[in-house]
Design a protein around this nucleic acid. Structure first.
Length: 957
DNA sequence: GAGCACTGC
C-alpha cells in the first residue's frame, strides 16, 4: 500500500490514445454486487466487449433494410479536418440530409440486388428462431389469448404481478407469432441490472447463447448484434436510439416492461410511441404493468376508432399476505366510565420494536426459523437516520439469534451485499425504498411498513430539488407488503391506521410531475416534436413545470426564448447539449470547457458528478474512510478534489496490477466498480465530444479555467455568504448551507457555486467551489438585472454617472458601481449635462490626451467593479485610454478627443475581452441588458475589440 | 454536522 501521496500536479500534456475508453484496469469486474454493476469485459462465450464508438454501428437500420448510408458508416474526410478548427461548424445532420438528396436513385439492378439480400437476411433470421417451450407459469396459461391480442391489435396492455412470468414469456409469444424477423423485438427494463438478468434468463430458456438471438444493451455494454432477435435494454437506451432512428425502424415489436414505475424515460417513450404508431402500422407495442391501473395505459393507446387498447390480466404466483394495521397510538381505557378512551401517541421506533416483537412470537415462527426456513423481517423506513435509530433500539432488545441489517443506497457495496448472504437464525432488515423495487431481499416472510418515504420533488417556488418525507401511496404500500408473499404466505404490519391508508393517494406521482423538465424538453426539441403542450403524455406535466424547464434551458444558452418557431428555437449549444449523455447543466459545462481549454478536466468532473460517489463511507468506519479521502481535498473546490482523486487513481492503476489496484481501492474506501464506471463515462463523453468535432485540451487547464467552465452550468446555484446568519443567499431568496463533508464547510468563502442544491432537513449545497462575482457577471450576462440610483453630474468624469446594482436571480453581484449614465437614461443625463456642464460650467475642458464620456460608459474599464462581497480577487486593471466614437451621441460634449495608438490597434494583452468569448460557437454573447447603447455606437474596450452587443464589464480572472 | 431511488449513442 502506498503512503498518502500528495496528488499529482496538473497532468502533463500527453497525446490521447486512439481509443477513447480508458485503458482496461485488468480483471473482468464480475463480482456480483447488489446494484449498479454491469457485466464487463467479456461476454459469456468470451466474445470481447465491443468498444464504444468503434467498429460497426450496428442496427441503425432494421435488419430487413440493413443497407447503411455511406455517410453513416464512416466519417468523411471533410468532417475529420474540420475537427480541429474553432468557430461555428455547420450542423452535420443537415449535411446528411443534403447528402441523402444528392445521392442518385438506385438503378434497377441495385434495387434487385438489395431485394435479394434482404430476403436472404430474413430467411436467415427466421431460421435462427430457436424452439420455444413454456415453463409452468401463470402467464403460460393465457399465452394464446396474448398471442391473439397481439395479432389483432397494434397495442396490448398486459397486467400482472411479479411472479406471473410475463417478463420472460411475452418475448417468446412474440417470436412464436413470427415477430422479431422483419425487425428486432425490443424489450425495455427500467434498470441495467434487470435488463441483463432478463436477457440471461431468456437466453437460457431458449437455449441460445447470450448475445446471439437474445442480446442486451445497457450503458457501456452492448451484447447484441444485427442478427439478434430479442434485444433487452434499459429504456434510456431506446430513448437515445431515437436520435438516430426516429421511427425505430430496426424494431418490429417493442415491449415496455414495468410501465407502472412511470419513470421519466417510460413516460417519454409511451408518449413517443403514441405519436409513432400511425407512422408505423407494422409496429406492435406491448406494455406490461403491475395490476395497478392498467386502464390508464389502455386509455392512452386508443386506436383510430377511439377504442382503448385491450388489457390482458395475468394472475401472479404469490401467496396471501395478511395485512395488520398498528397505528402509532396506544389506547387505554378511560379511567372514569362514560369518558372516551385515552389515546397516546408512541414514536416510530417504539412502534417498530412492538411490531417486530409481535411477529417474533407469531405461531411457530421461532421454531421454523430454527429449522432454517425463511422467517426474516423486512422493515421499510424513510431514510438513513430512521434506520440507525431503529437499529439501535432493536439491538437493545437483545433478541436471541437475531441479526439486524441496515440497507440503503449509500451503504457500501459489502454492507449492501450482506442481505444476500446465507445465514442462520433470524434477520431483521431495515431498508429504505431500495428494497421496494431495485433490490429483492430473499427469504422475507414478514414486512413492517412505517408508511413513509423520501420522495424527490421539484420545488416550484425555489426551483430546487427537495427530498421531503411523505406518506407513501396505496400502490407503494401494496408493493411493500407484497415483498413478503413471494416464497410463502406472509404478514405485513402497517404502522398506520386503515383509515389513514384508505385516505392516501392511489399512486405516487409519476416522475414527470415531480422533476425539472429541462432535459425532456431539450430532447423533444432536438427531435423536432414541436409544442410540448401538445405532446401526448400519459399525464401531461404542469405548464409551470414546462416554463421552468425552458427557463433553465435559456440559462444554459440551449434555447432562444425569443424564437417563436419551435423548430428553430434550439441554439447550437442546445443541439450539442442534447447529444451529450449527461444532465444538461453538466453538458453545458463541457461545452464551455472547450472554449476555456479545460475540456479534459471538466469531462472528468462531469463524469464524477453523473455517477454515485466512488468514495465509500462504511457505517462503522466513517472516520477511517474520511481520513483516507482527506488526502485528495482541495480547500477551495470540491471539484478539484475530484480531479485529485482521479489523478491518484490513474497513477495507481498504472503502477499496480489489476488485483493489487482493487485491493488498494478496498483498503482506501474506494469502490472499484464505480471507479470503472467513472472511467467508462469519461470514455463515452470523450467519444461523444469527438463526434461533435470537439477535442480535449492537450495542455493542462488552470483551476480558473476549469471553474469558469463549471460556472456556466451552475448560474442559478451560486450563493453569497451572509456573515450574520452564517448561511448563503442563493437564487430567488433561497438560503442554503454548505453540507458538512464539503471542503468549503469551514472556510465559508464569500461566493460559492454548488453542483447540487437539495432540500432535506434544510437546503444543503453539496460539491461546491469558491467562485467570483466577476465571472458570474460575465457568464450570466444574459440573465442579469441592472438598476441605477443617484444619477448625478461628475465633474471629474465629465459626464452623468449613477450607482449601478447588478443582480442575478436576486443575488446582488454588484451593489455600488459608479457607471456612466448617458446610455442608460439619455434624457436625464442630457438634463444633467445642460444644467451642470453648460449652465454651471462645472466641467474641466478636456485636453487632447484625455478622454471624455467614454470613461463613464457602463462597462468601460473605468467603471469600478463594485462587486458585492469583499473577497473578489479579480479587480480589473483600469485602462485609462479607452475611447469611443461619441459623435453620434447627442448628449456628449461636442469636443471629443481620440487618442491614437490603441484604437483599432493591436490587441492589448491585458484586455480580457478575448475573441474567445465574443466569437465562440458555444457561447453566444447575444444578450439584452437594458444598457445597450441606443444610438448604435460602438464601444471598444481599450484594445480595439468590438463589444457592441455586450456592455457588461468583462473582468479578468 | 448530513442524504430516497433510478438512469443515457
Amino acid at each position: 500500500m502506498s503512503e498518502s501521496p500528495t496528488p499529482e500536479p496538473p497532468r502533463p500534456a500527453r497525446p490521447r490514445p486512439a481509443s477513447a475508453t480508458p485503458p482496461d484496469a485488468g480483471g473482468t469486474g464480475r463480482e456480483g454486487v447488489a446494484q449498479g454493476e454491469g457485466r464487463r469485459g467479456r461476454g459469456r462465450r468470451g466474445r470481447p466487449r465491443r468498444p464504444q464508438g468503434e467498429g460497426e454501428r450496428q442496427g441503425e437500420q432494421p435488419p430487413d433494410q440493413g443497407e447503411q448510408r455511406p455517410d453513416q458508416r464512416e466519417q468523411r474526410p471533410d468532417q475529420r479536418e474540420r475537427g480541429r478548427g474553432r468557430g461555428p461548424r455547420p450542423n452535420r445532420r443537415n449535411q446528411q440530409g443534403d447528402r441523402r438528396q444528392d445521392r442518385p436513385p438506385p438503378t434497377p439492378e441495385e434495387r434487385e440486388a438489395r431485394r435479394v439480400a434482404r430476403e436472404k437476411r430474413l430467411a436467415a433470421r427466421a431460421a435462427s428462431v430457436p424452439a420455444i417451450t413454456y415453463p409452468d407459469l401463470p402467464v403460460s396459461a393465457v399465452k394464446d389469448d396474448i398471442a391473439a391480442a397481439i395479432r389483432d391489435h397494434q397495442v396490448v396492455i398486459i397486467a400482472g404481478e411479479t411472479g406471473s412470468g410475463k417478463t420472460t414469456q411475452i418475448p417468446k409469444v412474440c417470436l412464436e407469432l413470427g415477430r422479431g424477423i422483419a425487425g428486432q423485438i425490443g424489450h425495455t427494463q427500467p434498470r441495467r441490472i434487470a435488463a441483463r438478468s432478463v436477457a440471461e434468463r431468456l437466453a437460457e430458456e431458449l437455449d441460445v447463447d447470450l448475445g446471439k438471438q437474445v442480446g442486451y444493451q445497457v450503458r457501456f455494454t452492448d451484447e447484441s448484434t444485427r442478427d439478434t432477435l430479442v434485444k433487452v435494454m434499459t429504456d434510456g437506451i431506446l430513448l437515445n436510439e431515437l436520435q438516430r432512428d426516429r421511427d425505430l425502424r430496426r424494431y418490429d415489436t417493442i415491449i415496455i416492461d414495468e410501465a407502472h414505475e412511470r419513470s421519466l424515460n417510460i413516460d417519454f417513450v409511451l408518449g413517443y410511441l403514441k405519436q409513432l404508431l400511425p407512422r408505423r402500422p407494422d409496429l406492435k407495442v406491448i406494455v406490461t404493468s403491475a395490476t395497478i391501473d392498467p386502464e390508464r395505459f389502455a386509455a392512452h393507446f386508443t386506436d383510430r376508432d377511439g377504442k382503448p387498447a385491450p388489457i390482458i390480466e395475468v394472475s401472479g404466483r404469490t401467496y396471501p399476505v395478511e395485512i395488520r394495521y398498528r397505528p402509532l397510538v396506544r389506547v387505554e381505557p378511560a379511567k372514569t366510565p362514560g369518558k372516551p378512551d385515552v389515546e397516546t401517541e408512541i414514536d416510530q421506533v417504539t412502534g417498530i420494536c412492538e411490531a417486530v416483537e409481535e411477529l417474533w412470537t407469531e405461531g411457530g415462527a421461532a421454531e421454523r426459523a430454527r429449522e432454517g426456513s425463511g422467517e426474516d423481517i423486512l422493515v421499510f423506513l424513510s431514510g438513513e437516520r430512521e434506520i440507525r435509530d431503529a437499529a439501535d433500539a432493536l439491538e437493545g432488545m437483545n433478541l436471541p439469534g437475531t441479526e439486524i441489517l441496515p440497507l440503503f443506497g449509500r451503504l457500501s457495496a459489502a454492507e449492501q451485499h450482506r442481505v444476500f448472504s446465507r445465514h442462520s437464525g433470524r434477520r431483521v432488515v431495515l431498508a429504505t425504498n431500495v428494497a421496494e423495487t431495485s433490490l429483492t431481499v430473499p427469504g422475507i416472510r414478514y414486512v413492517v411498513d412505517a408508511g413513509t418515504a423520501r420522495i424527490s420533488r421539484y420545488s416550484q417556488r425555489t426551483k430546487v430539488q427537495r427530498l421531503p418525507i411523505e406518506p407513501i401511496s396505496r400502490a407503494s404500500a401494496n408493493q411493500r407488503s407484497g415483498r413478503c408473499g413471494r416464497v410463502s404466505d406472509g404478514i405485513a404490519i402497517r404502522l398506520y391506521s386503515e383509515a389513514d391508508h384508505d385516505a392516501r393517494p392511489e399512486f405516487t406521482d409519476p416522475e414527470i410531475l415531480r422533476t425539472n423538465l429541462a432535459s425532456v424538453i431539450l430532447q423533444m426539441t432536438a427531435l423536432g416534436l414541436g409544442d410540448i403542450a401538445r405532446f401526448p403524455f400519459v399525464e401531461a406535466p404542469d405548464s409551470r413545470m414546462v416554463t421552468d424547464g425552458l427557463r433553465l434551458l435559456h440559462e444554459l444558452h440551449a434555447i432562444d426564448p425569443e424564437e417563436k418557431d419551435p423548430r428553430r428555437r434550439l441554439t447550437d449549444v442546445g443541439r450539442r447539449i442534447a447529444r451529450l449523455p449527461v444532465d444538461p447543466r453538466l453538458a453545458r459545462m463541457m461545452l464551455a470547457a472547450v472554449d476555456e481549454g479545460a475540456l479534459r478536466e471538466v469531462m472528468t468532473i462531469v463524469a464524477a458528478l453523473s455517477i454515485q460517489d466512488v468514495r465509500e463511507r462504511p457505517l462503522e468506519k466513517q472516520a477511517q474512510a474520511d481520513q483516507q479521502h482527506a488526502r485528495f481535498k482541495d480547500e477551495k473546490s470540491d471539484f478539484v478534489t475530484l480531479l485529485n482523486l482521479w489523478k491518484y487513481l490513474r497513477k495507481q492503476q498504472k503502477e499496480l496490477s489489476g488485483s493489487a489496484f482493487r485491493r488498494m481501492c478496498k483498503n482506501e474506501y474506494l469502490y472499484y466498480l464505480r471507479i470503472r464506471e467513472w472511467q467508462d463515462l469519461v470514455g463515452q463523453l470523450t467519444t461523444t465530444m469527438r463526434e461533435l468535432d470537439l477535442e480535449p485540451n492537450s495542455r493542462p487547464a488552470t483551476s480558473d479555467q476549469v471553474h469558469r467552465a463549471l460556472l456556466t452550468g451552475l448560474l442559478s446555484q451560486i450563493g453569497l455568504y451572509d456573515r450574520d446568519k452564517r448561511e448563503y443567499l442563493g437564487a430567488r431568496g433561497a438560503r442554503f448551507a454548505i453540507q458538512p463533508g464539503s471542503a468549503l464547510r469551514r472556510s465559508s468563502p464569500e461566493w460559492v457555486m454548488s453542483a447540487e442544491l437539495v432540500e432535506t432537513t434544510r437546503l444543503w449545497a453539496r460539491t461546491n467551489a469558491e467562485t467570483d462575482p466577476a465571472w458570474i457577471e460575465q457568464a450570466g450576462a444574459h440573465l442579469l438585472k441592472r438598476s441605477y440610483s443617484e444619477p448625478h453630474w461628475s465633474r471629474k468624469r465629465a459626464g452623468a454617472v449613477a450607482t449601478e446594482r447588478v443582480t442575478l436571480y436576486g443575488v446582488p453581484l454588484v451593489t455600488d458601481r459608479q457607471v456612466g449614465y448617458g446610455s442608460i437614461d439619455p434624457e436625464t443625463s442630457r438634463a444633467l449635462f445642460i444644467r451642470h456642464a453648460l449652465v454651471e460650467e462645472d466641467w474641466d475642458t478636456p485636453t487632447a490626451s484625455s478622454t471624455t464620456t467614454a470613461n463613464s460608459w457602463p462597462g468601460s474599464p473605468n467603471s469600478s467593479p463594485g462587486h458585492a462581497g469583499a473577497t473578489s480577487s479579480s479587480t480589473r486593471t483600469p485602462s485609462s485610454s479607452s475611447t469611443t466614437s461619441a459623435s453620434r451621441r447627442p448628449w456628449s460634449p461636442a469636443r471629443t478627443s481620440t487618442p491614437g495608438g490603441r484604437r483599432n490597434g493591436a490587441a492589448d494583452p491585458s484586455c480580457s475581452r478575448s475573441p474567445r468569448t465574443s466569437s465562440s460557437p458555444t457561447t453566444p454573447t447575444r444578450s439584452t441588458p437594458p444598457t445597450t447603447p441606443t444610438s448604435g455606437s460602438r464601444v471598444t474596450c481599450g484594445c480595439g475589440s468590438p463589444t457592441s452587443s455586450n456592455p457588461a464589464p468583462t473582468p479578468t480572472a
